[in-house]
Amino acid sequence: MIVSYFPGCTLKTKAQDLDMYARKCAEVLGVTLEEIDNWQCCGGVFTTVNNDAVTKLSSVRALDFARSKTQPLVSVCSACHNVLKQTNHAVQTDKAFADKVNLYMGNESPYDGSTQVYHYLEMLRDLVGFDAIKEKVVNPLKGKKIAAYYGCLLLRPSGVMQMDDPENPQIFEDLIRALGAEPVIYAMRNECCGGYVTMESPEFAAKKSKAITDNAASFGADMIVTACPLCKYNLEKNGNSVPVVYFTELLAEALGVKEDTQNA
């Protein structure tokens, strides 16, 4: 299976591990991630005002690229996925917006919102299947208590993201189970880490992140996994001693490709 892949700015810089493990694991699972030509940064945020079409053009380009290849569009970073998915939804539901961005794009055939947008987790669940992953696990993560951190971007707005139940999501936990570990359910897993105010008010972001890691720790979590570089930064910098790991790294460990990359 070949899918279009949108890595995003941070996966090329501070979050290279997230990217590298994502690629390694995809290979093991029989998925080829075809990186989009000349992709541009998604901007990190989907602005909700309906008079801001220009900032969404990079996303439309990526979506259109995937359409031209008739491939689903996959990204790993929660923010990229959120922006791509919301942009796609806007093209599907807001005709004025769709007309405007297509005018800018100047494509022969206007982009129509037909690309299937998957987060890497959804790709694992819906295209690969957790059962298939379970079979490929060579190094089950037995005895580990792992707290999945969703944050806000993967789940909300739930009407658009449609990944899982926004208040009681399972997708991350199901993956953790497939890898042989025990998921830790804690209420703060879908609360915001402080996200983009990290620059503006680091002390505010710190407060939010601390509450999340404390809640996970109170349920005995050995580790927190996340999909978002900014979440990881916030939780690591401001949290307690519970280590924060990208989910792709965890996946790589279970699939036995983590050492490989280190040795290589």
Binding site: K14, G43, T55, K232
Partner: peptide
């Protein structure tokens, strides 16, 4: 350590 994402999104906001 601050990820690029933080700068980009702050600007957009």
């Amino acid at each position: 350590d601050i990820p690029q994402q933080a700068i980009v999104s702050a600007f957009r906001k």
